[in-house]
């Protein structure tokens, strides 16, 4: 939900299917100099994608059928890793955590819409200052963000619990208590991605022609009705875009868990860790801490299937609620 969001942005934006007019499709048959130029121009990006994305994915797919020695070298073990995977409690727990995190993370979307709507009010003073403030967490290093939140959440010396103690509440050990850890992480995740989502929604809102609202006002529609009948439907492409990104980002959550929850030995000693370990963190743990690379590859392939499936479902469902232009 943090670093991954910006990374995935371009891919998804290009992946949103623009309606292809029939006339365009016909022109594709005329392969000629124009097409060659086209291919030439996308070649650098295409090559980069193939070398740095596609090839590793294929390799990981292959490695998921192998077992690795402690210092590299691998042998084919067929479906063994997938068999272990199906019966592994840790995988199940981390999957459950990831899904919980993803669902809770979606709460950030209405929040972002709300803030965007407030920031979009025509006569708001200091609007650019607010926008900068909200966007600040997005451009801050995720690790720095996580470190600072770790201190804020400290059960004995953190600022949050200090403030709570002023009103007589004894706060928990936010990220070491199994009952609160997941929610504490979700809060940080929403906080970091809020600014980015607000910008997308703001852009979406500003693209809606003023005349619609004027017409609605003349017809007697109140602010709420205008928001529900005009803003929301016309914002739906942005909503769709942000929800796809949010889901993918949440499913790939790693950095927050790594810095705030711990890794390796420190993660083992954190009583809340089983409640916050995500699939990607588990993958990292298996690949680099316990050095079970083949098994780690199998875990990440399972995650790939999950992400592709969920994204496909989202694209299917969008036809029912997303209105383009």
């Amino acid at each position: 939900m943090t670093a991954t969001v910006t990374g995935a942005a371009d891919d998804v934006r290009t992946a949103v299917p623009a309606p292809v007019p029939a006339r365009r499709r016909r022109r594709w048959r005329h392969r000629g100099a124009e097409a060659a130029w086209g291919y030439l121009l996308i070649a650098p990006t295409g090559l980069g994608l193939a070398v740095f994305y596609l090839w590793p994915v294929l390799q990981t797919g292959y490695f998921s059928f192998t077992e690795w020695g402690p210092f590299g070298g691998h042998e084919w073990v067929g479906l063994d890793n997938y068999r272990t995977l199906a019966a592994d409690d840790e995988v199940l727990t981390s999957l459950r955590n990831t899904v919980a995190y993803t669902l809770l993370g979606l709460l950030g979307i209405p929040l972002a819409v709300l803030f965007a709507a407030l920031l979009n009010r025509p006569r708001l003073r200091g609007v650019s200052a607010y926008r900068a403030l909200f966007f600040l967490p997005v451009v801050t290093m995720p690790v720095a963000v996580a470190m600072v939140w770790r201190w804020l959440y400290n059960g004995d010396y953190g600022l949050i619990n200090y403030l709570l103690s002023l009103v007589g509440v004894e706060g928990p050990h936010w990220i070491a208590d199994p009952a609160t850890a997941l929610y504490a992480l979700v809060a940080v995740g929403i906080w970091t991605s809020l600014g980015y989502n607000i910008v997308i929604f703001l852009a979406g809102m500003q693209a809606i022609p003023r005349e619609y609202y004027e017409a609605a006002a003349i017809d007697g529609a109140g602010a709420l009705a205008q928001f529900r009948r005009i803003t929301l439907p016309l914002l739906s492409p942005s909503l769709f875009f942000v929800s796809v990104l949010s889901v993918i980002g949440s499913l790939q959550l790693f950095d927050l868990v790594y810095v705030m929850g711990g890794s390796g030995q420190s993660a083992r000693a954190n009583p809340a860790f089983p409640r916050i370990q995500t699939v990607v963190h588990l993958f990292y743990d298996k690949a680099f801490y316990t050095n079970d690379r083949g098994y780690a590859a199998a875990i990440v392939m399972a995650l790939l299937v999950l992400i592709v499936t969920l994204t496909a479902i989202q694209f299917r469902l969008q036809k029912r609620w997303v209105h383009y232009g």
């Binding site: 400290n154 004995d156 050990h173 990220i175 070491a176 000693a269 954190n270």
Partner: peptide
């Protein structure tokens, strides 16, 4: 407890 020692 471990919670405290995880935090500090």
């Amino acid at each position: 407890d471990l919670k405290t020692m995880t935090d500090t």
